[in-house]
Design a protein around this nucleic acid. Sequence first.
RNA 1: GGCCCGUUGGUCAAGCGGUUAAGACAUCGCCCUUUCACGGCGGAGACAUGGGUUCGAUUCCCGUACGGGUCACCA
Length: 544
Amino acid sequence: MDYKDLANLIFPDAKDISYYEEKYPKRNLPEGAMVVRVAPSPTGNVHIGTIDQALLNKKLAKQTGGVFFVRVEDTDQKREVENGIKQIIDSLKKFDLEPDEGMITETESKGNYGPYRQSLRKEIYEAYAKYMLAQGKAYPSFETQEELNELRAKQEAAKVRTGYYGIWATCRNLSVDEAVEKIKAGEDYIIRFKSPGREDRKIKHKDVIKGNVEFPENDQDIIIIKSDGLPTYHFAHAVDDHLMGTTHVLRGDEWLSSVPLHLQLFQELGFKPPKYAHTPTLLKNDNGGKRKISKRKDPEAAASYYEEAGIPSASVKEYLLNIANSTFENWRRANPDKSIDEFDFQLNKMSVSGALFDMVKLLDVSKNVISRYSAERVYDEASKWASEYDEELAEILKDKEYALQVFGIERGNAKPRKDLAKWSDVKDTISYMYNDKFDKNAEFEYGKISDKEEITKITKLYIEKYFNINDDKETWFNKIKNLAEELGYAREVKIYKAEPEKWPGHVGDISTVLRVTLTGRQNTPDLYEIMQVLGEDTIKDRLS
RNA sequence: GGCCCGUUGGUCAAGCGGUUAAGACAUCGCCCUUUCACGGCGGAGACAUGGGUUCGAUUCCCGUACGGGUCACCA
């Protein structure tokens, strides 16, 4: 009995790897094209980090004329969640990050390098595992979970490295005959990689983001095929990214320490390894400390959080790009109207250390993003959000024509309004533009002029003598000045400031009275525009 | 604990041996403005620490501290 016999005994039906090597030929892509991917697990609640990876990967693929694909890593059935794949696909869609290849629905995919779902690639992994077995580069291992736990305990007690390696790797030294005998006796086993590494040797690796990194070689005989017949991440990564032609693996920092293992796996499988780029983790401020943003503890870790909060996906992407390349901010300032597709993302300019997720900054970015939108787009997105998350707002927005006028206030000009950071801000910002949301008898907080009689006097005189909906802005404001003067107030703020004791107030105070009476608040956009939209009847009604 | 990675204002960050150490957000003040949101101007605020190397270190090397990651039949 030799290794080949052992391989045949374990995987009698597995195909020769040449079958797959031919089935998935080298991609015919231009020089420098990057083949990249995002490889999420369907464990529920798509992580914002996945969106981040997808965004960056997709940009890289686009910039280089390459391919961006999505591969679902569902090799852990225990953690798998119903609808997990759908959630991933939907999230990517919501962020406008659809892949060139990969899963497009729960069951369907597109592209010639599939399946793009690892659980469907079982026979492929088996072929490669068999190949390793036949070369003596992998072996069956018969320990039970309990025995492994005992091994660990022993190692911990002895204060040595834990794991399955060297003298601790008992099954590594089993002869083929012994292994065959155990298998034939019906003992359970898993397949382990026979690591050629030595811990006292170093390997050097150049990470695209982190730069040069030095590690001890891997000497762990890690499991490549689990007892459920599915591969572990490490083995699947090597096989899949080889077969799918991945050129660059962008993944979270937490994988950096697996690089020695992965390089070894590629080496022993005879594959050309991809370039690795380990992206810094998104962190979160936790009582003054920093920690990895966590799906379990932090709502903002979920990609869906932003949609629910009404933060446009475009804003999230801009913020993420901001973190990825600090040059983005300047680029955006110089090119306010360009699509982010035109921004030249540089992988090697990414920050090396993790950034604290800054919601305030995100909102600021978002404010600017929304300020660039047309009234039409604000309307579309706000109502789309409202239809799902805010019934009352959805109701308000039903009258599209009017809503467009409302959203058009101080928008579309050189200095657009920047008071909307998320769609959930909308209702409060525009409610007074709607009669059924405005209670003209409510107690408002006025400014300097708060005497009820004085207020009535001002509004009454305004309506009777000065108000005309057809006035242009200059005439309109001049009339308010005249109104101020007639009532004994300074018609210009400057005059007032020169001699404040001379007047009870100035034109601004008069405006405030009109503003508060009309809108219920002291801070609003341009009052003239508001009045134009409100219309004659509403104005007269509110001011009298 | 072992092994990795990191540490520039409150936050994100430029910086690659000689700089008055950029910029953005936040903050404070002023200006503009009939109020806000903008916009403009300005203020305060940083190279974790100790040793080297060097004529000179934020920048290079070593140690320390702190932070993060990783050590599964999870990815």
